[in-house]
């Protein structure tokens, strides 16, 4: 494991199942049992119908690049040394979009609509971060 110098997420009661699953190599999203809608980012209520009947479901981990940017300047330690890197919004098969970086791919090869799949990088014993790479 390399030294992790990027910021780390804060694990809260609301988000612990997500990060626990990442450690096992699974990407979780939430689904509402009342209205049937998926949602992301994780939260304690259904953002659509405001019920509390939400449960975690395992996403397929597959999606497409909805949009992206190749970042050439970011002064924040942890990212400053990574430029150019690809910041992207990926639309999961389940229909919700999430922020990520596209990895294992030269920035010039990334395009909108490109099929991608989730991959995890272990930051420390508690946190593995989901990224996306070109679908294999």
């Amino acid at each position: 494991m390399t030294t992790w110098n990027k910021p780390l997420p804060t694990v809260s009661g609301e988000t612990r199942p997500f990060w626990d699953a990442c450690r096992r190599g699974q990407l979780l999203i939430q689904k509402c049992d009342r209205c049937g809608e998926f949602q992301f980012y994780p939260r304690g209520i259904c953002a659509n119908c405001w019920s509390e009947d939400i449960r975690w479901v395992t996403a397929s981990g597959k999606g497409t690049v909805w949009t992206y940017t190749v970042t050439y300047q970011n002064r924040t330690p942890g990212f400053a040394e990574d430029v150019p890197y690809v910041l992207a919004l990926v639309e999961l098969e389940e229909g919700v979009r999430m922020f990520t970086n596209i990895v294992e791919c030269p920035p010039r090869d990334v395009s909108i609509g490109m099929p991608v799949e989730v991959t995890f990088v272990q930051a420390n014993n508690q946190i593995s971060v989901p990224y996306f790479k070109p679908a294999g």
């Binding site: 990027k6 910021p7 780390l8 997420p9 804060t10 694990v11 809260s12 609301e14 988000t15 992301f40 980012y41 994780p42 939260r43 940017t69 970042t71 300047q73 970011n74 924040t76 942890g78 990212f79 990574d82 890197y85 910041l87 999430m98 922020f99 990520t100 970086n101 971060v129």
Partner: peptide, 18 residues
């Protein structure tokens, strides 16, 4: 990073211009 949404956004090197 705050739990949501920051932990699901700022983790990836967001910038305002980006």
């Amino acid at each position: 990073l705050e739990p949501s949404p920051d932990s699901f956004e700022e983790l990836y090197g967001l910038t305002t211009v980006g």
